[in-house]
Simulated assay, not measured.
Amino acid sequence: MNTISLCMIVKNEEAQLADCLSSVEGIADEIIIADTGSTDSTKKIASGFTDKIFDFPWVDDFSAARNFSFSKATMDYILWLDADDVLLPEDREKLKKLKEEMDPSVDAVMMKYNIAFDKSGAVTFSYFRERLSRRDRQFLWREPVHEYLATGGTMIHTDIAVTHRKQKVSSSDRNLTIYRRILDGGGELTPRGLYYYARELKDHAQYAEAIRYFSLFLDGGKGWVEDNIAACNELGDCYHRENRRQEQLMALTRAFSYDTPRAETCCALGYAWKEKGDFKRAVFWFRLASMLERPENSLGFTREDCWGFIPCIELAVCLDKLGQTQIAEQYNEMAGRLKPEDPSVLHNRAYFQSLKTAEQPEGQKA
């Protein structure tokens, strides 16, 4: 049977580390903890699970820290997690089975990363990450921020998911500061660096500067196709926030030059026309989103609701505005099958019922 080293980098994670480490019980044959400067009880908590705890001075480089943790592994495969990640019971059992049955010629395993959820717990945002890799291939992490493991060889996709359970909302400008230190020091950002720097700028509401760097990334022509598509969507949102409507539409439609339309882009276009009150055009884009086939094993960011719920619920609203009430109600029921207790579905259902009641002759009303 394959053996697994869990390698992690941590700092001040006392609130969530135990949950993370407990969730890999029966999977990790060894646990490697690289601590980058904790001042709380993180290392004490970690010591309850492993004696392989190492100090690594923080050097503003996530890849350097992760590569250090990987260098301490001794098992066949390396699994990585962050302290606010967990394996839910179903996924833990799937990973145990994979560990037992996986062909040792596999070099890397892609797993889903579920990072955002609605009030009912349904996943709303996810993407795939390179989670498990063969130690003897000595794959390295790259990029100081928003790092990635540069894998190759035989790779497999699985439906095993890692669940992100962030317990506190961070407004830290740490990542932004790292990027700016690189630029201020005369360094250059890779295409991936330009993309993620632009995302950091957008997250900090610096929309004009974000527009500049998203544009530099796209115009450079060296980005990964999924990042190109996502950058068009993010650029469109930046233009929207800057009230630059025509440029918003141009940015969004640019995404179609990279691959077949994605539901995320079509929904954004639908919202753009709905906001203007052009419900006919909004219907076109939401309807297209509802008909799209999701790319198989796409490694890009996926907003799950765009591939089902949002098109249906928005078509219910927009078609009603156009006087097509019967079809609008049908779309609302389609949305309801996806999210039965969603407040919008319930509100619309009551609205459509009120219309029917109003149409009944006075003597037939309940």
Rank of each mutant, 00 (worst) to 15 (best):
P261A: 08
Y213D: 10
A161G: 04
G187W: 00
E188Q: 13
S47D: 01
K365L: 10
P144V: 10
S22F: 00
R66V: 07
K202D: 14
Y113G: 04
L149S: 02
V59N: 13
D103Y: 03
Y271S: 04
L216E: 14
A34I: 00
V109G: 09
G277S: 02
R244L: 12
L252A: 07
C306N: 14
P104F: 09
M334G: 01
S22Y: 01
A122K: 15
T36P: 04
G186N: 02
I78F: 03
R281E: 14
W58K: 00
R165E: 14
N297W: 12
Y197T: 01
K321A: 13
S71P: 00
P295V: 09
A335E: 08
L81A: 10
S41V: 09
E304N: 12
I33N: 06
N67A: 05
W80A: 03
M8N: 04
R192N: 11
P144E: 13
L21P: 00
L132M: 11
G336P: 06
W80P: 01
Q206I: 05
E13C: 09
L235R: 08
R92P: 02
D118H: 01
V162E: 07
W285Q: 08
K119E: 14
D103A: 02
G193Y: 07
A358D: 13
E314W: 09
S38A: 11
G187C: 09
I115W: 12
L176R: 05
R241C: 05
N114P: 02
Q16S: 11
